[in-house]
């Protein structure tokens, strides 16, 4: 039962990830693409947490932590580049 819940949750998060990819591909604004990429990274983090829960392995969460910090830095850099034409 609990494994079924986690499997369905993983599939559902994958569907949400596909929706985010469609938003990123179809939008014409650059900032919407940056926002959709940020949300996609969050979906990947969520999928890794679900994998870690269902398999009882902890080192998926290391990847999730690194992905969270990298997505933050890339989002801030892309937004600054979009606004001012330079990063620093």
């Amino acid at each position: 039962m609990h494994e079924t819940v986690f499997s369905i949750a993983t599939i559902w998060v994958a569907v949400l990830l596909v929706v985010c990819v469609m938003v990123m591909l179809r939008s014409r604004s650059g900032l919407v693409r940056v926002l959709a990429l940020d949300t996609m990274a969050l979906m990947f983090i969520t999928m890794l947490v679900l994998f870690s829960d269902s398999r009882g392995v902890s080192w998926y969460l290391d990847v999730a932590l690194v992905l969270a910090l990298l997505s933050f830095i890339s989002t801030v850099a892309a937004a600054r580049y979009y606004a001012e034409g330079r990063i620093f």
Binding site: L31, V34, L35, D38, L42, I45, V49, S58, L61, D62, A64, L65, A68, L69, S71, F72, T75, V76, A79, R80, Y82, A83
Partner: peptide, 25 residues
Amino acid sequence: ARAVLIICALLLTAPVSSHAIANAA
């Protein structure tokens, strides 16, 4: 421990990245 670290990282960085996107807009 890793889940607490990820929660702290998300709760600290999500408002900052949202503010960066709003500032750019």
